[in-house]
């Protein structure tokens, strides 16, 4: 069962379109797998819509265009045909294993897969500055050395499972970590994650503390 959900304030920002595409896409992936959150998003949207359109002091709106001309133009355009969304599955392959990807990723460009040990990563080229998104695959028996974060790290487990000192995770879990957390995830059977990271990771143990090669790999 999915145990980790986006917090309410995140859902509200999502509904208002105020989050980076990477995070909203993560919420969409989660809510497609989580009935509870999907219903909550529907409720929140209704509520925000009501709030938005119940304002009354807007009679003095000054448009930067000629209203009548615009209405003329618009009403001469053709209605849009009802298109059935193209849900041709998108997929990613890491070392010969192919994973189906969520629909929300169908227009996202992926970088070439890169590899360190049992970790594979493909960047999702969303171009969001310091916010980096990736598909991260941990091969069976692999893990990530103990680390903490300056910024935040959102992990959406897509397939397989992993665990850390806080517990075990299942597909659909939406896991948010920040500087207050330290963890060392390991995956017994292997897994594929959608990750959004806002700053490089900081390793807290051993050689990784000095060299940090995996830090930039995962960020």
């Amino acid at each position: 069962m999915i145990n980790h959900h986006p917090k309410l304030n995140l859902l509200i920002q999502h509904v208002n379109g105020e989050l980076p595409a990477s995070i909203s896409a993560g919420i969409k992936i989660h809510s497609d797998m989580c009935k509870q959150c999907s219903e909550q998003i529907a409720e929140l949207t209704k509520h925000e819509a009501k709030l938005s359109f119940s304002q009354t002091n807007v009679d003095d709106a000054e448009f930067g265009f000629d209203v009548d001309a615009l209405i003329n133009d618009i009403t001469q355009t053709q209605p849009e045909p009802e298109v059935i969304p193209d849900n041709k599955p998108v997929a990613v392959t890491f070392r010969g294993v192919t994973y189906k990807l969520p629909n929300v990723m169908k227009h996202m460009e992926l970088g070439k897969p890169a590899q360190i040990g049992k970790l594979s990563r493909s960047r999702i080229l969303l171009d969001e500055g310091h916010i980096h998104s990736s598909l991260l695959r941990i091969e069976a028996g692999g893990g990530i050395p103990e680390h903490t974060h300056n910024g935040y790290e959102i992990t959406l487990l897509l397939e397989g499972n992993f665990k850390d000192d806080m517990g075990e995770y299942v597909p659909g879990d939406f896991i948010v970590l920040d500087g207050n957390h330290q963890h060392q995830p390991v995956s017994e059977q292997g897994c594929l994650c959608y990750t959004v990271v806002s700053d490089s990771l900081h390793f807290t143990q051993g050689i990784n503390k000095l060299l940090n090669p995996i830090g930039s790999f995962i960020y």
């Binding site: 497609d32 009802e82 990723m105 227009h107 397939e159 299942v170 597909p171």
Partner: peptide, 24 residues
């Protein structure tokens, strides 16, 4: 134009009760 993928105007699929990719 990712908005259409994040918030589709036409919802294409019912929510699956099971995690979608277990048996992929």
């Amino acid at each position: 134009n990712l908005s259409e993928d994040i918030w589709p105007m036409i919802e294409d699929q019912a929510i699956e009760d099971e995690p979608f990719s277990d048996h992929i």
